[in-house]
């Protein structure tokens, strides 16, 4: 039976267990008034709050879609003059001449893709290695500090990476690493072009290194989190029949966590594709495609960062915006491919 005395409990906002408190309080008060009409009024208020909640969250989701759509529309609108002037040839042209207004995206696209591939080739094995070490082999005392240190790497602003790359890494690579690479691969047929040229210090390889360092924390911490979700039962079963640590990792942990690891790698790849400031400092800003990894190049974001403030004329600005649209498209394709791969994996395992 409802109590007749007015309740002193304060009503919190709607939702959750506080909501049930509130409904209780309200229903108690309703009992002491004329029942039918007030009951409808009270229930109506609850329904209103519920409806409001639903609409607000729906609006939040719609706003995200609207913003995304708005970005796509403004990119297309901004790049329309360039698209009209160059057509599809823009994607395959190598020239970048602001004077004759002849622009081509190929060096920038090549640079973006190459630096990201170099970054992934370095960061994925190292990141997975860190995650495996932290979950399987590391002494318990060291796990928190090393984990925190890896995550701190993610917190360093990208421009600091750029400055460090330009003042510390590049001279080091120029005096010690690059001459060694050039000398070592000088005679081997394919690698001699891959590692040819004067040792600039900055260039695609340096940019790839720095991107690898920036992407590493994402891959390492996501992989570690995912590795920790492997049920101990599975691992113990494997150990129980005599599997070594490596065999457990290779045949139990990694297959179980495939989906999460690939998700982490894709997140890292997304960051590597779009990274601007760190790359701009060390990429060398040469609108050329060179066979050598040691040569300077450019990426889409580095080109836009360098040239947007002074792009005089509609066609120049529009060409830069079209580069932005191409990057947006590349990122979209990468994410779609990742999703598709994950879907296939889940289908196979189901």
């Amino acid at each position: 039976m409802f109590s007749i005395e007015p309740s002193r409990r304060s009503a919190n906002g709607a939702g959750g267990e506080a909501g049930s408190d509130m409904s209780e309080v309200v229903l108690q008060q309703a009992a002491s008034l004329s029942v039918a009409a007030d009951r409808t009024r009270v229930l109506g208020r609850l329904a209103l709050v519920d409806r409001l909640f639903r609409q607000v969250t729906r609006a939040a989701a719609v706003i995200v879609l609207v913003i995304l759509g708005g970005v796509i529309v403004s990119l297309v609108y901004g790049s329309w003059p360039a698209m009209k002037a160059f057509g599809f040839g823009f994607l395959f042209s190598q020239s970048w001449n602001p004077v004759t207004e002849n622009f081509g995206a190929l060096p920038a696209i090549y640079g973006t893709v190459m630096t990201s591939i170099i970054a992934m080739l370095i960061a994925v094995p190292v990141g997975l290695g860190i995650a495996i070490f932290l979950t399987e082999l590391c002494p318990y005392v060291l796990r928190r500090p090393i984990g925190t240190a890896i995550e701190l790497l993610a917190g360093i602003p990208s421009i600091i990476y750029g400055i460090w790359g330009l003042f510390v890494l590049a001279p080091f690579l120029q005096s010690h690493v690059q001459p060694a690479l050039i000398a070592a691969f000088g005679d081997i047929p394919v690698f001699s072009t891959l590692f040819a040229g004067p040792p600039y210090g900055i260039g695609m390889l340096t940019a790839g290194f720095i991107l690898a360092i920036m992407v590493l924390p994402f891959i390492a911490s996501i992989s570690r989190d995912v590795f920790e979700t492997v049920p101990l039962v599975l691992k113990e079963a494997a150990w129980g029949i005599g599997a070594t640590t490596w065999e457990v990792t290779r045949y139990v942990v990694i297959p179980y966590t495939r989906v999460g690891v690939i998700g982490g790698v894709m997140l890292g790849l997304g960051r590597a594709l779009g990274e601007t400031m760190a790359v701009t400092f060390v990429i060398g800003n040469a609108h050329k495609i060179s066979g050598s990894l040691l040569a300077p190049g450019t990426t889409i974001s580095a080109t836009i960062a360098n040239e947007f403030t002074e792009a005089v004329g509609d066609l120049y600005t529009s060409a830069l915006i079209e580069l932005g649209l191409i990057l947006f498209f590349i990122t979209f394709v990468v994410l779609a491919v990742a999703r598709y791969m994950l879907m296939r994996i889940e289908q196979k395992s189901a």
């Binding site: 020239s95 970048w96 001449n97 602001p98 004077v99 600039y200 900055i202 260039g203 060398g284 800003n285 040469a286 609108h287 300077p296 360098n306």
Partner: peptide, 12 residues
Amino acid sequence: NASVEWPVGIGA
């Protein structure tokens, strides 16, 4: 010109 297609080199 203020901006040319440099044959070689790195840009700063």
